[in-house]
Design a protein around this nucleic acid. Structure first.
Lengths: 161, 161
DNA sequence: GATATTAAGGAATATTAATCTGTATATATA
DNA sequence: TATATATACAGATTAATATTCCTTAATATC
């Protein structure tokens, strides 16, 4: 076996997809429970999961926390433009954003704005402080436009498979 | 102990927060490994985790999959307005959106649009089909404005604690 | 000062993960 | 056709872990 285990030609069958589908909704199942759901015995299911981990289809296992209970119930989308679009200024912006814990997502986007930020804060007061103190201290931001989440219809981390 | 176990006055200490922080980044740790990280023995850590689950701070455990590897590498934000804003029409829209697997997130928002949708698809061709066939078949949509993700800077499911 | 109450550690037990062995099936090869 | 080869599976075994129980220490309460 190669050291890098770069099994790039790995193709998944129906059962693999079913396993992924189940695990991205709930990962704290025993092998036996998972096996029952896909109508196989322990061993093949165990080996398939390990294969999916090794091949990178499963990147990680995480606990999903309750934002409300942890007092981070206000979600804000902030669309940002940069004053200039050189690689250097872009890199610095990225570095700055990565250090802000309130920013849980950040994407480079097409359209009128350069970056889309998803931000989690306690309340409007905290958001104001975030914009003034933390986002405001980042250099080369041209404009920032905030949109506030009023209600959650669907909020998954699931890939449509 | 009450049947409902509605311990709403539960307050968390520093160690609880450290446990949550660790688990929302990586949940497939053994109790022993987690205990070592917070400098406690197995039992108290085990009991704290169970307490956090029961009290609802931990909602779920999930596997994080690789969207690129699963051929869902195109992320699109779609901002939607409804023609009318009655509760009935809103409810029907919500029901329709919930049935679309491509829509991984949907929020009711402030501002120029009514809803923000995060959509995962294979490529632009599939997105075109999604808009024409699936989104297009939903009634009472007034307008839809798409923004395409060009690059990912940060994409977490972590709550800032 | 005596007594609850709470949080922790250690040890025992129950479950589960992880491994190993063997079998059936399909595919290739002589 | 008969014989290798690889793959996927089931069943059993063992190694590790989760879970429970009991005891101790610290802190609060009377």
């Amino acid at each position: 076996m190669s050291l890098t285990e770069n099994n790039s030609t790995l193709t998944l069958d129906e059962i693999d997809f079913r396993i992924l589908k189940i695990l991205q909704n709930r990962s704290n199942l025993t092998t036996k429970q998972l096996a029952a759901k896909v109508n196989l015995s322990n061993t093949p299911v165990f080996e398939r999961v390990k294969k999916l981990e090794k091949a990178g289809f499963i990147k990680n296992y995480i606990a999903v926390l309750d934002a409300e209970k942890l007092n981070k119930g206000l979600m804000v989308f902030c669309n940002v433009t940069l004053k200039e679009h050189t690689r250097e200024i872009g890199n610095q912006f990225v570095k700055d954003i990565l250090s802000l814990d309130e920013v849980v997502e950040c994407f480079n986007i097409s359209g009128d704005y350069d970056f889309f930020l998803k931000i989690l804060v306690t309340d409007m007061k905290e958001y104001q402080n975030f914009v003034l103190d933390r986002l405001g201290s980042i250099k080369n931001i041209g404009s920032a436009h905030s949109t506030f989440v009023m209600g959650e219809i669907k909020n998954t981390y699931s890939i449509p498979i």
